[in-house]
Amino acid sequence: MIKKLALTAVMLLLCGCSHKTEVRDKGFVRTIGCDSGEMQSVAVRLYGQEEVLSGSGDTIFSAVENAETAQGKTLFTGHLELLVLNPAEIKDKLSVMIKNNRISPSCSLIITTGSAADTVKSYEEEELSDILDSSSRKGKIVTRNISAVLNDLLEDDSMAAVPVLDGKNLTMGVVGYDSVIGVLSEEESEGLSWLTASQHDIYLPINVNGKAASFHVRKSSTRLTAEADGDKIKITTEIKINGSCIEENISETESSKAAAEKISVLCSKAISKTVTGMNADVLGIEKCIRSENIASGQSWKEIIPELEFYYSIKIAS
């Protein structure tokens, strides 16, 4: 009996050792915009609320905590949908975010050339996420989550491809540890999308014999292969497309040829801007080469001049 009472007493005492917060006392964070300067300043947007909370602190989390006081609710970042950062201390901030166990690793990332906090404030509640999603669906950009970007930044080249918001223009860009190395044009950004992600249900504008037409891509998949070719390394991007031209009076062969040409041009533009222009391995070329045991012992920078790019675009209707 004494044992049971003692055990009950211990358990009752330990009941106090719990951090309970009722659901109604929690604010669920949807978007965070964070600017690094001398202090970290954040703009926090919650689910179902128009008001944007602001706060600043030494770290991103202390800044979020300070924003919390204005709202009176405990801010819960586990459902963070979008993180907007300015180009300073990108890697450090992402590392902290990943190490903090309450942030979803699948949270999307946008880098702004201006102030991230102001960007969050200037868009409506879901507007920024919607722009990101719709651009990604149209094959204009590729959405990247914080874990994937951090993984890329930890690679040897220390660069990652991320959607960059330049003014009101959202395209892909290449970022380093704490800077934006370059912003891609719309065409280059589209090319990068073809190179890195599968496309679904998009309409590609093509030109067949001087006549504008739309090529409907139902589904596409991309595969990268590396092959030693003398002192060169042959990188082949194989893109398999299932699609057809919408216009009925254009032949299947001609439209497919035009689509393949268009995609090749877009891809080569993206490659020349990122790999050749910025020395950035945003396609995972190095991993691909290493897995084939080619150029072992050479650094990424030594490999770049040896690379030759080929595109194999296969279209089936």
């Binding site: 590392s95 990943i98 979803s104 690793p105 699948s106 874990s147 993984n151 930890l154």
Partner: peptide
């Protein structure tokens, strides 16, 4: 986890959080 493995204290849990088997956040 890729290179992120070096940043985590308990890789099993981080791999679990990253893999997200259902439509859940972590």
């Amino acid at each position: 986890l890729g290179k992120i493995i070096n940043l985590t204290d308990f890789p099993f849990f981080t791999a679990g959080a990253f893999s997200q088997p259902f439509s859940i956040q972590r």
